[in-house]
């Protein structure tokens, strides 16, 4: 009996790989040459020309091997792959820039002090963003307390109660997710701050953030609750449970990790929100633990203020603030992904 080795006749052969590599190198060299001899210049010129050469070269290679139809196919394939690369390019640039420029402004001191005695233009070894971090944590926490119940109730209305307004509410939640953050800020300004409290405070900003957060939580929760098999609801009801007890004891616990994801995505959505804070929070420079009194600082406000101060120190402060902010967002985002990929047992 002869043993048969498994083969993959459809996989690329070494010759194919070599040809792909040759095309890649050729396009790189060509784009380098063109940049060298023509007035075109800059990193983007390299990238742009490389795109053109690479797509055309793979198209030609396809033509030689299989004819015209294949040429178009390969040309498009390369083009599409390169476009996907373009999508990722800004992310790479943003991350590297923030790290490269922000790390100089990061030291232990900034997590211990606030800016009550310093201006953004002061040397980097004085002042810090403690007030901004505590402020952002408080703003987000208050917004969470308000938006999580409303967001999840909205999702429950769509998936469990399924009342008369299901369709309009789905539409309204969608519409609400498109409300510009500045409009949410203006609304709180006109409806709460001017007529009632008449003073800037963290709570005002949290109200605006709540408006922005509800649709994210509602839509993600809706998706999650829809994935809970209907069998489980039927089993709960068939055991003599009321709808309320079935939802509370079976549906929500089964969706737990998904709902956590919804909440975390909601936080990520608002943690860096700036415009409403400019209108409502007052942006203090001192650590202020009370959201109902006195202006409250926050990371976005700190970044904004430092950036607009304009001196090299201030700009470095802004980058450092961005680095802290983006680290928080990334941690939240990773947590959300880990939670959502964990399978429901």
């Amino acid at each position: 009996m002869t043993t048969v080795a498994p083969r993959k006749p459809w996989a690329a052969t070494p010759a194919d790989r070599l040809r792909d590599l040759a095309i890649f190198l050729l396009s790189a060299v060509l784009s380098y040459l063109v940049v060298a001899v023509t007035p075109a210049k800059g990193k983007l010129a390299y990238v742009g020309l490389f795109f053109i050469f690479y797509s055309v070269a793979s198209g030609i290679a396809g033509w030689i091997k299989f004819g015209r139809r294949s040429a178009a196919d390969l040309f498009i394939k390369t083009l599409i792959g390169l476009m996907a690369f373009v999508t990722v390019l800004p992310i790479l640039s943003i991350l590297t820039t923030v790290i490269a420029k922000g790390y100089r402004g990061i030291n232990l001191n900034i997590f211990k002090t606030d800016m009550s005695l310093n201006a953004p233009t002061d040397p980097l070894n004085v002042g810090g963003l403690l007030h901004a971090i505590t402020g952002t944590v408080i703003l987000v926490s208050v917004a969470l307390v308000l938006s999580v119940p409303l967001g999840i109730l909205t999702a429950l209305y769509i998936t469990e109660v399924k009342g008369r307004f299901t369709k309009p509410i789905k539409f309204l939640v969608q519409a609400m997710s498109g409300v510009p953050s500045i409009v949410a800020g203006l609304f709180i300004l006109s409806a709460v701050l001017y007529p009632i409290t008449k003073a800037y405070s963290g709570f005002m900003a949290s109200l605006a953030l709540t408006i922005l957060m509800i649709p994210t939580i509602a839509r993600t929760s809706e998706e999650v609750l829809k994935l809970i098999p209907n069998d489980l609801r039927e089993a709960g009801v068939a055991l003599g449970g009321t709808q309320w007890r079935t939802v509370a004891m079976i549906v929500l616990p089964a969706a737990r990790s998904g709902l956590m994801t919804a909440v975390i995505l909601g936080i990520a959505r608002i943690a860096g929100e700036t415009a409403p804070l400019l209108l409502l929070s007052g942006g203090g420079d001192k650590v202020n633990p009370n959201p109902f009194h006195d202006p409250m600082g926050s990371l976005p406000y700190y970044i904004w203020k430092s950036f607009n101060a304009g001196s090299p120190e201030a700009i470095t402060r802004a980058w450092a603030g961005l680095l802290v902010l983006i680290t928080i967002v990334l941690i939240l985002f990773t947590a959300a992904r880990l939670l959502s990929t964990r399978k429901v047992k």
Partner: peptide, 12 residues
Amino acid sequence: VTAGGLSSLVIL
């Protein structure tokens, strides 16, 4: 739940 669900309508 209906009251909570109507929050988007109320806010808008």
